[in-house]
């Protein structure tokens, strides 16, 4: 591309980025809204009971294939359970984990990051050293160790995510709070007689908040995938509840006989993880004053 007029090229590029950003935000946000609605109203929207087994309807293909039964839109698994209904109920667990684990991780990590970055001193010393040790620990193994000790279950999964991932927030928020703390407006708040804690909450926090929101969005995607992985290896909630990871594990074993049992939950998980990360990246650019 000839760039004889760099100024115009840049404006052009910026407009293009902006347009692409908008589309990205809408698509990923739209998918997540669909998911939230499906999860919230699953008892009314799902065509079948997700646990109901019926060997007469086992391994029915999805609606467009020969041999499909009406009402079983995405087919059934080897026990005759409706795939679509199970995906909708599975979304409940995925989103609950995303919400609880994500929020708690953000709260704990961001608080520690703010304290370390703004108050500095020994608090910073302790928190930073902790972060360093945590970083030396392979996250997957840390999760496995924690689950091994606490025993499988949804609570263990959520606790494991919080214990492992708080450093993500702490590191970034600490750096941001340090940068903000060095700025003039903070100094003037101090001169105006504001207390240190007050300054942190009313001056620093609002300026760090966009970063926290971006990280939170990304963290929710991570939480969804971690829950899926742990339910895939049967270390999450009991198999009485339909989960995407559990469905994928079943689909993996019968992939040669009934691919749809693997493909649909996998596609849902894929889109959800992609949406969270695209939403996060999109928000990051949205909050970026240069692009705005």
């Amino acid at each position: 591309m000839p760039s004889s007029t760099p100024g115009f090229a840049m404006l052009d590029a910026r407009a293009m980025v902006k347009r692409r950003l908008g589309l990205r935000l809408w698509l990923s946000g739209g998918w997540l809204v669909v998911l939230v609605v499906a999860a919230t109203f699953a008892p009314w929207l799902a065509p079948h009971n997700p646990l109901e087994q019926d060997l007469f309807t086992s391994r029915l293909p999805p609606f467009w294939m020969a041999g499909a039964e009406p009402g079983y839109w995405l087919g059934t698994d080897s026990l005759g359970r409706d795939v679509l209904s199970r995906i909708m109920y599975g979304a409940r667990i995925a989103l609950v984990v995303a919400l609880i684990a994500g929020t708690a991780t953000a709260l704990i990590g961001a608080t520690l990051g703010l304290i370390a970055g703004y108050f500095r001193g020994w608090a910073d010393l302790v928190i930073s050293r902790l972060v360093d040790i945590w970083m030396a620990f392979p996250p997957v193994l840390f999760a496995i160790l924690l689950i091994a000790v606490m025993g499988p279950g949804l609570v263990s999964v959520i606790v494991a995510i919080i214990v492992i991932d708080w450093t993500r927030f702490a590191r970034v928020v600490r750096a941001e709070a340090m940068a903000q703390g060095a700025m003039d407006y903070v100094a003037s708040a101090q001169v105006a007689g504001q207390k240190r804690l007050g300054t942190m909450l009313t001056e620093i926090l609002p300026n760090v908040l966009p970063t926290i929101v971006v990280l939170l969005t990304l963290e929710m995607g991570i939480a969804v995938i971690v829950e899926a992985i742990l339910s895939f290896v049967n270390l999450s909630i009991s198999t009485d509840f339909p989960t995407w990871g559990g469905m994928i594990a079943e689909g993996r074993t019968s992939v040669h006989q009934a691919w749809w049992v693997l493909v649909f939950p996998l596609a849902t998980l894929f889109l959800t993880v992609l949406s969270f990360s695209q939403l996060g990246e999109g928000l990051k650019d949205r909050f970026d004053p240069v692009l705005r």
């Binding site: 899926a228 895939f232 992939v255 040669h256 996998l266 993880v273």
Partner: peptide, 18 residues
């Protein structure tokens, strides 16, 4: 980058295994 190895593994299983 935005999709982890676990999901790529499943996609590969579908594409080149099935």
């Amino acid at each position: 980058l935005s999709v982890p190895d676990f999901l790529w593994g499943l996609v590969l299983i579908l594409l080149f295994g099935v």
